[in-house]
Structure formats: C-alpha cells, structure tokens
Simulated assay, not measured.
Amino acid sequence: MQNWLYIVLVILGIYILLSVLLFYLQDYFLFKPEKLSKDFQFHYDNQEIEEYNIETRDGATINGLRFKSQKPKGVVFYLKGNSKSIKGWGKFAVDFTRHGYDVIMVDYRGFGKSTGRRTQKAIKRDMQVVYDKIKEQVAEKYIILYGRSMGSGFAAKLASMNNPRMLILDAPYYSLSKVAKKFIPFMPLSLLIKFPMPTYKWLRYVNCPIHIIHGTDDRLIPYKTSVKLSKIKPESTTLYTVIGGGHKDLNTFESYHKMLGEIITSRPTKVNLEGSSINVKHSSKHANAKA
C-alpha cells in the first residue's frame, strides 16, 4: 500500500512540476521573436516605406511600417504570425500594394524594435491603438484586417470591436488552447494557458464579410479548423481552399494569389435567388415510387 502511495505522490509531483513549467515557459514556446536594434534600417526593393513608433499608456513602444502604394484604395492592417519580426514579414506587403493598397505592419511586444511586457490583454490593446491611428487617416470602409496564423486571433478580436471593410484570416486557429491541447492533451490548459485566444468566440461578433484561406496540408493548424470556423457566421463567411497548401507556404501557390486578388478587389454583392433551386427539395424514394 505504501509503495502505491509513493508512486501516486511521485506522479502527482511530476504533474504539478510540469504544470508550473508550462505556465512560466509557455511564452518561450508560443513566441519566437527576432530582436532588432533601435538603429536598424528597414529596406525592401521596389517598396516605399515609412517607419513609425507608437507609445502605449504603460510605457511600451510599438514599432511598425507603412508600405505605400500610388493612389491607395485603402489600407490593409496585416497582423503577422508568432515568429521573427516585420523585417522578414515585410516581403508579403507586395501582395497588397500591387493591388493599390497601403499596408500597415507592426511588431508585437518583444519583437523587432517593439518593447513592453507581452500579455494577451496588452497586445489586444496595442492593436486597437494602431487601428485607431489608422482610422484617423482612413475611413473604416477602406480598412481591411488581415490576420496570419497567430495574428488571426488578434484580427478577429479587432474586427469584433470595429467596423472594417472586411476580415481576412490566413490559416486561423479555433483557439490557441485547442492547438496546445493537440500536443499536450493531459494538461489542464484552461487553467494554465496565458494566451487562450478564442478566435471562435470573437468571430460571433464580427459584422463585416469574413474570408478564410487555409491549405489542405496544414499540419500545425488543420484545414478542418477553418471549416469549423466558417460555420460560426456562414451567412457572411467564405472559405477558400488552397489544395496542397501547408502552414507556411501558401504564398508559393498561384491559387492563393488568385483568391487574394479576388477578395480584396471585389465588392460584396447580394445574390438574387429568384428563380433558383434554393427551395427545391429532392423527393424521397417512397414519394417517387408512389408517383
């Protein structure tokens, strides 16, 4: 009996130790920031950029870039993934500037030149501050929110609290808690995770058109995640499928660029269903036999 009790206590002790380590080290596993010196100079071939810094109310600095286009049709606020800095992510701005849109990219706290203690609440507040700055120069009907992977949750939250022209989610997650549970199903994540990021909850309050792009071969965030998300507000959501696309390579697919171009250059139109088969139902076998 004493041996069994000893074994139980050892297992319990290990479980508690793992829980404590997960709580304090999760920031290391979730975020892979690249630090940049304050005097680092951004440069992109054939791109006109403007660098800026925003001071937050708690004393942090959010560093960002504006990629400029000639006679812009609007602004894309691009919320990037959980790795590197806008130094590398900036190369994706061309996918929007070539369509006549300015692009705003910022580094989250602790990334690039941005400073400050990183928490889910603080980052959400920072993104709203940036969005408000954009609104000072551009009407919301000309603002497109684009969230990539980690940034998809923050983009969904922003869209739920504001009225942008549209929300585009690239390889989004249902919630980060769900993603983490896939790798460590035995841990009490609801109590431990500091960045639950419940995208599915925030999407319920989004009133603009929602466009979701996902690759069928995404091994980090499965394609079925976007299928599930698309059912939250099906009347205003369109799901775009990149056949064979993974988590980090959608930009290498011609179909992705075709989809993106169609999304950002089109205007939502109401479908005229008069005379369509929308209300026509197939007869049952029994009914057919009887007829």
Results as ranks from 00 to 15, higher is better:
residue 3 N to L: 05
residue 4 W to S: 05
residue 13 G to E: 00
residue 14 I to N: 04
residue 16 I to W: 05
residue 17 L to N: 07
residue 21 L to A: 15
residue 22 L to Y: 02
residue 23 F to K: 14
residue 28 Y to C: 06
residue 29 F to D: 11
residue 31 F to L: 08
residue 33 P to A: 07
residue 34 E to K: 12
residue 37 S to L: 08
residue 41 Q to T: 13
residue 42 F to P: 15
residue 45 D to R: 15
residue 46 N to L: 09
residue 49 I to H: 13
residue 50 E to P: 11
residue 51 E to F: 05
residue 52 Y to Q: 07
residue 53 N to S: 06
residue 57 R to E: 01
residue 62 I to M: 11
residue 68 K to T: 08
residue 73 K to Y: 01
residue 76 V to N: 03
residue 77 F to Y: 12
residue 78 Y to K: 05
residue 82 N to H: 01
residue 83 S to N: 01
residue 88 G to N: 12
residue 96 F to S: 11
residue 98 R to E: 05
residue 98 R to W: 00
residue 100 G to V: 00
residue 103 V to M: 05
residue 107 D to C: 03
residue 107 D to E: 03
residue 109 R to N: 07
residue 110 G to R: 05
residue 114 S to R: 09
residue 114 S to L: 08
residue 116 G to D: 04
residue 118 R to C: 12
residue 127 M to E: 11
residue 129 V to D: 07
residue 133 K to H: 04
residue 141 K to F: 00
residue 143 I to G: 12
residue 148 R to H: 07
residue 149 S to W: 00
residue 154 F to D: 10
residue 154 F to W: 03
residue 157 K to D: 10
residue 158 L to D: 11
residue 169 L to E: 10
residue 171 A to R: 09
residue 171 A to K: 08
residue 179 V to A: 15
residue 182 K to H: 09
residue 183 F to G: 13
residue 185 P to Y: 02
residue 187 M to D: 04
residue 197 M to P: 10
residue 201 K to S: 09
residue 208 C to R: 05
residue 210 I to A: 07
residue 211 H to A: 09
residue 222 P to V: 10
residue 223 Y to I: 09
residue 224 K to F: 06
residue 228 K to N: 14
residue 229 L to D: 13
residue 235 E to G: 15
residue 238 T to D: 11
residue 242 V to M: 13
residue 249 D to E: 02
residue 250 L to I: 08
residue 253 F to S: 14
residue 253 F to Y: 15
residue 256 Y to P: 05
residue 265 T to E: 04
residue 266 S to Q: 02
residue 267 R to Q: 00
residue 269 T to N: 00
residue 275 G to A: 14
residue 277 S to R: 13
residue 277 S to E: 07
residue 279 N to I: 04
residue 280 V to S: 15
residue 286 H to R: 12
residue 289 A to I: 02
residue 289 A to Y: 11
residue 290 K to D: 10
